[in-house]
Design a protein around this nucleic acid. Structure first.
Lengths: 114, 114
DNA sequence: CAGGATCCAAGATGATACTG
DNA sequence: CAGTATCATCTTGGATCCTG
């Protein structure tokens, strides 16, 4: 992330009005917060994630994981064997997001009673 | 927000896998975080917000404000006069989100260097 | 001034089939 | 097992015009 003029931020070629929006761009995608939460509990194989997100297509899951990997929050470890084995885990950067995710969860429970 | 079975949450008719996703649904919309941040600084008229978000259409701004109002984060005060005057401010619930927004902004600055 | 209504383009997501 | 490719669809966001 780099700063330009008058509080404008640039991250990966896109402009944002504030850091909050950058964070939302990184963790706000569909399923991303959930993925991060699950990976914070334990390293998981792709098939484990598929089980957790049974109503999500493989395509979406893969896509979101790739983006999280690109942003450096998730590490993807490929074991060169047949059948393939791929494990996903959080990087330090990913871990650093965890406390904020917890607070977001708590906020919903405390403030959004129907 | 209410709980159903196996960690499933329901908020305003939609199902979510966790509270984090509910929070993201509420504050993750386009411009919403920015709107909340600005309103945390001061009450603003619609025209003030238009100036701040000059590259946003009235339609989008109105839509996002309406949703924030529905979710109880923003208060909309209409003054019955001609020409109309409408002021937007944060509710207590909206204010309660502010610390988390700040943390999200800080996280981006600390962890997302290009 | 502060919007609402309508139509359309673009982007995000889903279904399905195929692969090393 | 862990994907990719392609096509269809559903949802968002923008442009434009109208109103009390």
């Amino acid at each position: 992330m780099s700063e330009t003029t008058a509080d404008r931020l640039v991250y990966r070629g896109k402009e944002y009005t504030c850091g909050i929006d950058v964070t939302l761009a990184v963790v706000g995608g569909k399923w991303k917060a959930s993925i991060l939460w699950h990976l914070a509990q334990q390293t998981m194989r792709f098939s484990d994630l598929q089980r957790q997100f049974s109503d999500t297509t493989r395509k979406m899951l893969t896509q979101q994981l790739r983006e999280l990997e690109t942003d450096g929050l998730v590490h993807r470890e490929v074991y060169p064997q047949v059948p393939p084995k791929v494990e996903y885990s959080l990087t330090e950067k990913g871990m650093s997001m965890y406390p904020i995710l917890l607070q977001m969860g708590n906020w919903a429970r405390e403030h959004l009673r129907d």
